[in-house]
Computed example of a mutant assay.
Amino acid sequence: MKKKILYAIALLFVISGAKAQQNDGLPGVPQTESYVVTPVDTTSGVIVRKVSFLRSNNIVLVGNLFLPKGLDKTQKYPAVLSIHPAGSVKEQSAGLYAYRLAESGFVTLAFDAAYAGESGGTPHWSEAPYERVEDIRYAVDYLVTLPFVDEYRIGALGLCAGGGYVIATAPTERRIRAVAGVSAADIGAANRESWLRGRSVEEQIALLEDVSQQRTREARGAELMKVYMCPEPDESTAPSFREGYEYYRTTRAWHPRADNFYLRRSQATKMAFSAIENIYLLTQPVLLVVGEKADSEWQTERFYNALPGKDKEVFTVPGYSHIDLYDKPGAVNPAVKKLAEFFKRTLQ
């Protein structure tokens, strides 16, 4: 049966046929296509603009910039980056959180990572953790060019692996003044130890041997191998990946630019990564939001214990799981409320 194309934030946005205003009085807001994304809830007043910016290797990153109601172009506003999970795109959970924080008065930016969504970079479907760290640095570069963004009041929020990427970036990217993770995960630890932990060193090495052999086949002309991030679940599937299948691969949040594939060779680059390698330098305020029923709670605890600063907090959303925090209103609403309070305090 043909899949019905739905955007993850379909309850909030529809694509409008109206032409984007190329001269709408908002300085420093380039546009790459003639369309606007219009909130269904028109009373929110949030304006969304499609933007693009250049990162290293001449890769163009494409994002959605969310502007709060009544934005005064002569004033300076706090800004928050919203970083999507692995295998995701800006229209899914990261866009939802960006939109909701814009309702609270922040300029926000959700963008597609290199090799994903509408952004450039080949081969697509690569999950390259250290490059995703660079993506965040270039996103900050973009924000500081906007005349209505206060360069001293920039925060960053990441979901799942995006949370780990933000935590990995902030220690050495001091323009990020406050850090938040929602269902935050270190993609390196999760792939080395497995999502529920317990993978032995011998099993890790065997996995890497298999990936290395696949790269040899591809170097000799074989097609690049793609695998699902969340394959069809069975009795051994971790809860988050069972829920991830429902989120990414059904009409709940399926997006035409997020087919849930990643390159098999990316397994090695993920296992080589550590989100806490330089965490001893992360002295900015940190908020970690986790669901009470999340099977990734060990990751939140690991981050919290490794953080050196005193301004750190774990906020637990009762009754909800890892994936619930992506879009379930009962989980998202308290998470956004807490995030807005956190960023207002730390970016004042």
Rank of each mutant, 00 (worst) to 15 (best):
T250M: 11
I167S: 07
N278K: 14
S52L: 07
G63E: 00
V286D: 00
Y320H: 15
R199E: 08
G181V: 03
A253F: 00
R257L: 14
T300K: 05
T251K: 07
Y248I: 08
A168V: 04
R137Q: 07
P30G: 09
E235K: 15
L282D: 05
K19C: 11
V314N: 05
L65I: 13
Q299I: 01
L12C: 04
E193I: 07
Y97M: 04
L12R: 04
E243H: 10
P256Y: 09
I59R: 06
K312S: 12
M229R: 06
I47D: 06
K312N: 08
R100D: 06
A102S: 13
V14E: 11
P239A: 14
G120Q: 06
K337Y: 08
V48C: 13
G330K: 12
Y152E: 15
R252D: 08
S88D: 15
L67D: 02
E301K: 14
E202T: 10
V201E: 13
V182K: 02
M271D: 02
D41E: 15
F343V: 05
A10E: 10
G158R: 06
E246C: 07
V48N: 03
A253L: 01
K76Q: 11
I187R: 06
I176S: 09
T74K: 12
A222D: 12
P68G: 04
V46W: 00
W254Q: 13
S240C: 08
D72E: 11
K226G: 06
